[in-house]
Design a protein around this nucleic acid. Sequence first.
DNA 1: TATTGTTATACTCTATAACTATA
DNA 2: TATAGTTATAGAGTATAACAATA
Lengths: 177, 177
Amino acid sequence: MTVSKTAEKSSEKAGDATKGRKDAPEGHGQGSAEALQLGELSEQLGYVLKRAQLKVFENFLRCMASLQLTPAQFSVLLLVEKNPGRNQTEIASTLGILRPNFVALLDNLESRDLCARIRSTNDRRSHILVLTDKGKAVLSRAKKLVATKHESRLNELLGQANREALIEMLSKIANEF
Amino acid sequence: MTVSKTAEKSSEKAGDATKGRKDAPEGHGQGSAEALQLGELSEQLGYVLKRAQLKVFENFLRCMASLQLTPAQFSVLLLVEKNPGRNQTEIASTLGILRPNFVALLDNLESRDLCARIRSTNDRRSHILVLTDKGKAVLSRAKKLVATKHESRLNELLGQANREALIEMLSKIANEF
DNA sequence: TATTGTTATACTCTATAACTATA
DNA sequence: TATAGTTATAGAGTATAACAATA
């Protein structure tokens, strides 16, 4: 409720939005060329959630351009660092990634020498995942970039308290909806 | 800040998560089989945003199963109803849908007699979009389903005030991040 | 028999170039 | 020439079945 009212200025944002924007109130024959009314759409949870998610991912990619890490790759590195000694199935399923789709993702990280698969001695079917030294170094830099360039934008935009409340509500939705 | 603390119970959620869950604290040789630590991941905006968005879309699809409407289709019907007489480019770009990708989406809605393309008399290049009577009726039922089955879950989960604050913060991110 | 990692494959979304018909 | 709708196409992301190695 401390949230500053700025949602109502919703107008241009999608794709191009470089065509309308005329000075005269009316143009030619019949069709007005002004911005559309979003109406109930701007109150739809799914709609704003999706739009926000796309914006956040875009910003994440820009912030991480120098390290060439996608959100998915970053999440894998973070999870492997926090849970060393786990196998592919465990890491993948925790992130909601299906095992078949995790293979190419890991191939990429391994080819860049950021993490490594180690055949388990107990169960020779499974691959234990660990970060390489380079992987640890890159992740460390990635965290700093995310904190200073990415997450910091949220604090500027919403303020510390609102930022925490937002994360908490989103977690609740992710876990209980 | 009124948000009830429930984010910490983050454990099983992804994909299967039906394998771990053992009773004994330790199993065999070396690897423990307990839930992984999410660590900093649970504080990452992009991560929780994406997980929440997936959950919300899943729920939306379940709620709309009887009408067979996806979030994208629903948003098109909503926007066309609110802005009758607009052409494909205007509707698509407002929703962040690229024109080429909008064609098949519209073909679907038109084949189900929910909306219609009408060749504009002023500019014979453009197709004016309108809802059919059936489209209006279906949208009306869809709105009720969304309100009673889908959006209502948010109020149960977060409470009215938090729900409004959430939508507002997400809109702000979508528009200004 | 069941499970781990893997391959193959398919289906959806998204993105770009280029065509046509109009302007 | 420029724009609206369209086609074709390519790339991500996501989903399922099935195989080899191992348990």
